[in-house]
Write a protein that binds this DNA or RNA. Structure first.
Lengths: 109, 109
DNA sequence: TTACAGAATTCCTTTACAGGAATATTCTCA
DNA sequence: TGAGAATATTCCTGTAAAGGAATTCTGTAA
């Protein structure tokens, strides 16, 4: 999967934008209002998200609606799925648990 | 979920380290060799991953074994699951499909 | 056409971070 | 204790990226 996707999401404001768009497309102005940021910053962040193909633009008259694209997030999900055994496997969980226990007793020495 | 997790992974070398560690713990030297990078860079990247709680260290004699911690990746997975309807839902897929079709016909004009 | 609203771009400054090279630290074992 | 292997840290430099402010672009409606 693309590190560009992660890089684009690794910025708090952009994370919030993506979370907003989970509920459907929004215009730049709506995003600006909901996040209480300045319009140029919103546009700049949206540009980054757009270049990372995380969002699409749909102009309607004077406005531009931004909308989530499934693909990059889906690719992240697929990539993460290759790690799922780390926490779905009982033995690994037990292992982590024992490690924590051990750390605790170490601290007591 | 933490943007720190995403930031740590949004660097190609660190992604590769995490992917290596999927198969089990490795020492700094092993990572250095497998990735063909310099040892200080390996240590530096591991430090970032460690501060993001993506890896744990287990000293054994002279070496330090680095091991994946499930939690941050699991949190990413949980976060992504809130977007899963974007690509699991038939209607959304159809919507994307129609959008692509429309873009194609636009290009032909 | 003009004026205006919505959105994008540019310029500037500051800060964070990556790699290279050198050096320091830590642990083991003879 | 001293040497050496494994790893971490420091210093330097270049670069990318974020926010603020100002400006520009674009489409709409009168």
């Amino acid at each position: 999967m693309e590190t560009e996707t992660l890089g684009a999401l690794a910025e708090p404001t952009r994370m919030r934008i993506v979370e907003l768009l989970r509920n459907g497309p929004l215009t730049v102005g709506e995003i600006t209002n909901k996040l209480q940021i300045r319009q140029p910053q919103a546009s700049k962040h949206l540009k980054v998200l757009n270049e990372a193909k995380i969002v699409d633009v749909h102009p309607v008259a004077n406005r531009r609606f931004y909308k989530l694209r499934p693909q990059p997030l889906q690719e992240m999900d697929t990539w993460l799925s290759t790690f799922r055994s780390l926490w779905e496997n009982q033995f690994d969980q037990l292992d982590e648990y024992l490690t924590k226990l051990q750390n605790q007793s170490n601290r007591e020495e």
